[in-house]
């Protein structure tokens, strides 16, 4: 089944856009059910991941916008009264992972999505380009800039948070 072959990639797209892996599966499921109802718009011979990817991105963007609006509403209500839990001591790898996740969150949606697709599911630039409807050079540029920004944020010498050293 085409979906089975693409689900990991589509999950990465969803997570790249919303920036939250917990929402990835729900978005992909919603997109798949939506796309099922529109199968007649899929042209045999064209790229199934790219066709499905448009539904995933659309729903993920909607989800992200909803989250942003919710966050703005919370911010407008003033500081949260719920105290922050003290950070428990973590092992270096967990600490580093947390900083990597924070640095990833600072990237643009396109940068984050391209970086995850390249790094995690190891797509070629051409495949990323097809999936995200951008020229391969743009996909390459997004990945390059994303890496550069991540490195600069995670350098030990950097004063920018997150600042813990790369192990």
């Amino acid at each position: 089944m085409l979906f089975r072959a693409s689900s990991r990639v589509l999950w990465c797209v969803a997570v790249g856009v919303v920036g939250d892996r917990e929402q990835g599966e729900d978005i992909v499921q919603e997109a798949a059910l939506l796309a099922l109802g529109k199968l007649d718009t899929f042209r045999p011979g064209s790229s199934f991941p790219a066709w499905m990817g448009q539904y995933v991105r659309y729903l993920a963007l909607n989800q992200r916008r909803k989250s942003q609006r919710r966050q703005r509403a919370l911010d407008a209500d003033g500081p949260s009264l719920v105290p922050q839990a003290p950070t428990a001591p973590q092992d270096p790898q967990a600490l580093f992972d947390r900083n990597v996740a924070q640095a990833l969150a600072t990237l643009s949606e396109s940068q984050r999505t391209c970086l995850l697709l390249k790094t995690v599911v190891e797509l070629e630039y051409g495949e990323i380009a097809d999936l995200l409807e951008m020229p391969p050079g743009t996909a390459m540029s997004h990945v390059s800039r994303a890496r550069a920004k991540m490195r600069s944020l995670l350098q030990p010498e950097s004063n920018t948070s997150p600042k813990e050293a790369v192990p």
């Binding site: 990991r8 999950w11 990835g24 992972d97 995850l116 790094t119 991540m150 790369v166």
Partner: peptide, 16 residues
């Protein structure tokens, strides 16, 4: 690089 390794640890798709 360690950043890529961390990304794979954290953002590899779950069992779908």
């Amino acid at each position: 690089d360690p950043i890529a390794a961390s990304l794979r640890r954290q953002f590899s798709p779950p069992d779908l």
